[in-house]
Design a protein around this nucleic acid. Structure first.
Lengths: 202, 202, 202, 202
DNA sequence: TATGAATGAGCTTTCATTCAT
DNA sequence: GATGAATGAAAGCTCATTCAT
């Protein structure tokens, strides 16, 4: 029973994501989601209090995935070398995005719908998230550029997302533009120490 | 009023932009726009054939503004020093965004909303835009990183947009994070020659 | 009400028919139909996927009625005498129309309105309808005029419809112009054997 | 000047007819008509007081055409042989319809729209039309079936219209189903004297 | 004569949500 | 837990008509 319910909730989220990917978040409707899952429209309201909650559900699940890559153990370990932590974070986000090519896009799309909603981002992804500590440590250690964390994050995610999109669209292939190329670009933007080539052998 | 009021079209576009800024592009409806302008809803269809055309109108106007900054003369002049051209482009976009704090955001919003629309960007902003030549020249001259133009553009616009947003939200002030700081970060991402400090005194 | 009210669909169809009778098929709107039934307008879309489907619904129901008169057993029985079959068909359509004075009119109205719709009639009322066989048999047996079935059908239905309309409008009464008079006229048009007076005593 | 005006009115009527033929009368709108003619929408209101008048205009013009075939002189001549008058009328309508394959259809379509309008037909085509006299004379002379004129007319027009439609749709060709075949059918329905084969040589 | 501008009312359709079963 | 029925609100869009120029 419990399992069945859990699956259903996931199925609903999955369907919602599919719609976002295909038609954009503006196209989401409980009707369409229900049809895709194969349940009745009103059934959705048993799992999500309203549409907003459904959107939140998608958002939070995607964020959670992003924050639960196995490399996060290294990234969030304060005892690890900071250069390694930063680079691993970068690599981890990169790998994640290539493996989940729509994840960042979905997050972006939901943000699109959430402008009107009150306190959306801050409420969901509190400023006290663990990544903040990483950036602070990086700056203190003289590895990262001394600049607002939001800007650094922007570079990382916008470039990775666009790169993923380019790969999806066949603009170029992964061997044309490999990780090293992309990460060099990003690293140059956020760090003030040389690109850690030695860490490349993963 | 006999003559088609030229201002009216602009007023409609303005109202649309206001809605995007306040509630996001997904919240646009002809009803709301009309109410804001103070005209009847059907009147909008006298100036824009449909909602898509309205969105296009907003997008194109914003793009046009962006491409018509005075510095563009320098940027697009093939005889000018390429380092100067690139840096001027950066500065020009930066200045524009600070003076039009919602412009990039509006463009982003419409782009995101238009995922469903067929061939949107390519149809509106042809790939043969003049900036492409700038990037190609920059790469050939060994100034810019040899990487897909889309990635470079992404860094420039996403960082400037986020920076502008931060300023708007009072996250920090312009004297906390001045142009030099931001541009250094961006420049590091896109160029492989040192940051052109000498050009700063504009 | 839990179960989908079967009557409701019929009620909607009834209301639509009423509107056609009063104002013509061009005057149909979901708004008017809903108001007549006493339901909310959007409710209609629970029973008919769109307006087209509503019109189809009316058409098909009327056609079905027409094809399910008790005499059809005789008409469609290939072993029955062909003269009897043809005459019974005529009488059957006549009786039906007098008992359902708006049926043919409604069919006519929907057909006319549907000129824009693609493949309308052929899609709904396949050319392989059982009446076709009747006409072919009639021709082969030397009873019916050797002429395209559509023309024959036209005579039957247009005359009966107009006759019914005349009765409705009080142009004349049924005893002024009885079945025999009308059927003689029609029979003369479609058959090449004498009018089967012997069959009149039904 | 005067000529120009006359032409314009005709152009508007022509455009309206074209729309009816292509999409049916329900698709008529001043917008579409104006666009087809190449004039402004409001200009139509200079020639027709409202939409109803436009429809009437189309209807009346078509009826007038129908009643002004050259053979009408014979048909309406009380001194002519009544058998000749009736047959000529039949032939005249037949020829007219083949030469103006959409005329009867257009009339039918406009009637479709006019159900709601008060007293439409009677107001436009007064019952005191000259054809009435023809039928009365025919009946009195023992040529025509003693039956309501409306039924007779129905046979004539419905068969001719369907026949024309069949030809238009390529159901059969004119040599497959020539005038003689069709007129024999109609004649049988309306007359009680033998088909006037002798009059066939036109 | 001709037109552009404007509008209110109407249309079809979709949506989020609620409720009884 | 699940569904069918229902609805009010809103959406995008078209239309017939009027009016000032």
């Amino acid at each position: 029973m419990k399992k069945k319910d859990l699956t259903k909730k996931q199925k609903i989220l999955d369907a919602t994501v599919e719609i976002i990917i295909r038609d954009g978040s503006a196209a989401i409707s409980t009707t369409k989601v229900a049809k895709k899952v194969g349940i009745s429209q009103s059934n959705i309201y048993l799992y999500f209090k309203d549409k907003r909650a459904l959107l939140d559900g998608v958002y939070l699940r995607e964020i959670a995935r992003l924050e639960q890559t196995p490399e996060m153990k290294i990234v969030l370990n304060p005892d690890e070398d900071i250069r390694i932590r930063c680079f691993t974070y970068l690599k981890s986000m990169y790998d994640f995005s290539l493996q989940n090519p729509h994840s960042l896009y979905v997050l972006e799309q939901i943000k699109l719908l959430s402008k009107g909603a009150p306190d959306y981002l801050s409420h969901l992804v509190g400023s006290n998230n663990p990544i903040e500590e990483l950036f602070n440590a990086g700056i203190k250690a003289g590895v990262l550029r001394k600049i607002d964390r939001r800007l650094t994050m922007t570079v990382i995610f916008s470039v990775i997302e666009k790169h993923t999109e380019n790969l999806q669209n066949g603009v170029y292939t992964e061997s044309d533009v490999p990780f090293e190329t992309v990460s060099q670009m990003i690293w140059a933007a956020l760090a003030i120490v040389p690109y850690p080539k030695d860490l490349l052998s993963k």
